[in-house]
Simulated scan of single mutants.
Amino acid sequence: MKNPSPLLEIKDLSIKFPSEAGVVSVVDDFNLSIGRFDHCCLLGESGCGKTVAALSILNLLPSSAVIEGEVLFNNKNLLDLKPAEIRQIRGKDIAIIFETPASCLNPVMSVGDQISEVIKRQGFTRKQARNASEELLARTGVSDPKKRARQFPHQFSGGMLQRVMIAMALAAKPKLLIADEPTTALDPTVQIQIIELIQDVVNELSSSLLLITHDLDVASELCGNVAAMYAGQIVETGSLHKVFNSPRHPYVQALMKTFDHNRFRPIGGSPPPLTCPPEGCRFHPRCPEAEKLCSTQKPLMKNGVRCPR
Rank of each mutant, 00 (worst) to 15 (best):
residue 122 Q to N: 13
residue 123 G to P: 06
residue 124 F to D: 03
residue 124 F to C: 09
residue 124 F to H: 14
residue 124 F to K: 15
residue 124 F to G: 00
residue 125 T to I: 05
residue 125 T to V: 07
residue 125 T to F: 09
residue 125 T to C: 07
residue 126 R to Q: 08
residue 126 R to P: 00
residue 126 R to D: 10
residue 126 R to G: 02
residue 126 R to I: 10
residue 126 R to M: 08
residue 126 R to W: 03
residue 126 R to S: 14
residue 127 K to W: 01
residue 127 K to I: 07
residue 127 K to G: 00
residue 127 K to F: 03
residue 127 K to S: 10
residue 128 Q to C: 09
residue 128 Q to R: 11
residue 128 Q to N: 06
residue 129 A to F: 07
residue 129 A to Y: 00
residue 129 A to E: 03
residue 130 R to G: 06
residue 130 R to A: 13
residue 130 R to E: 12
residue 131 N to H: 06
residue 131 N to A: 02
residue 131 N to L: 06
residue 132 A to R: 15
residue 132 A to N: 15
residue 132 A to M: 15
residue 132 A to F: 02
residue 133 S to C: 03
residue 133 S to V: 04
residue 133 S to W: 05
residue 133 S to E: 02
residue 134 E to D: 02
residue 134 E to A: 07
residue 135 E to F: 07
residue 135 E to S: 11
residue 135 E to Q: 12
residue 135 E to G: 00
residue 136 L to D: 03
residue 136 L to N: 01
residue 136 L to M: 04
residue 136 L to R: 00
residue 137 L to D: 02
residue 137 L to Q: 02
residue 137 L to I: 06
residue 137 L to S: 04
residue 137 L to V: 09
residue 138 A to V: 03
residue 138 A to Q: 11
residue 138 A to G: 06
residue 139 R to F: 08
residue 139 R to T: 06
residue 141 G to V: 06
residue 141 G to D: 02
residue 141 G to P: 12
residue 142 V to H: 08
residue 143 S to N: 14
residue 143 S to A: 15
residue 143 S to T: 14
residue 144 D to H: 13
residue 144 D to V: 03
residue 144 D to N: 12
residue 144 D to W: 00
residue 144 D to Q: 10
residue 144 D to C: 03
residue 144 D to M: 08
residue 145 P to W: 01
residue 145 P to H: 08
residue 146 K to F: 07
residue 146 K to S: 10
residue 146 K to E: 14
residue 146 K to V: 11
residue 147 K to S: 10
residue 147 K to H: 10
residue 147 K to L: 14
residue 148 R to P: 10
residue 148 R to I: 12
residue 149 A to K: 01
residue 149 A to W: 04
residue 149 A to C: 10
residue 150 R to C: 09
residue 150 R to F: 08
residue 151 Q to F: 09
residue 151 Q to Y: 07
residue 151 Q to E: 13
